[in-house]
Amino acid sequence: MKTIWSIFKFVFMDNLRSVWAIAYTLFIALSTYALVYFTGSFTRGVVSIMNIIILITPLVSTMMTSMYFFNKTDFLFLLLAQPIKRSHTFIGMYMGIAVMLALSVGFGLALGMAMSAPRIEDIQVLLLLMLTGVLLSFIFSGLAFLIAIATRDKLRGIGMALSLWLFMAVIYDGLMLMYFIVFSEYPIEEHAIILSLLNPIDLSRIFIMLQLDVSALMGYSGAVFQKFFGTGLGVGVSIGAMLLWIVVPQFLFVYRARRKDF
């Protein structure tokens, strides 16, 4: 544990002091502020802010993680040459990057909100957005890590990470829509719920949408979704699914790293 902590601290500090981390935080803060400013209220801006969180956070997380991994091979070799377990090295590195990314989102959102003088009611939605941003940072940083460890080549690794993002953020929804249209004669609300649990970006989006009380817009289907996601069970399953998206890639990249030649 001590080695993981030491590596985490080092990687975290290294990332924290990078221009990218500062730029990322400021970007989130300024876009939050700008959206609140231009739409006149947090409640109205929140949908746009949500779109930034569920699109940009995964993108930045995958990219920054891939870049860090592939640009720091010397450091990685130095660590691997030390008398410590590979799993410690990788978990420490992953945590260092992911925690920095998560903090950037969380802090950026809080800063953007603070600048735009929030009301008490907005805090709840803000906290939900922050939670989503944090979870997505961990998830996509982990997935990028897994891809980086599973590929040899920098270009291919970054390409695959980018494709994964594109798939999760855009293409998956297209496939889902095709499914809905093909089976539109059947009650497929449950399928929709299961399909969305399988994609952390969709899950985040739906969760926030239902909190914003747009479920009334969604008619019968919306009532089914609200009934699931609005209960303790639904919240539990959703959070569980998000946590699995964090834990499983970690297991996979540790497993893969043990067998990898560097």
């Binding site: 855009v170 929804d173 297209g174 829509l177 497929i188 739906i206 949408m209 008619g219 919306g222």
Partner: peptide
């Protein structure tokens, strides 16, 4: 056409 697809509201694909 397919009410369940409302779950995709605000999705980038849409």
């Amino acid at each position: 056409q397919s009410p369940a697809s409302i779950i995709l509201m605000r999705s980038t694909f849409i």
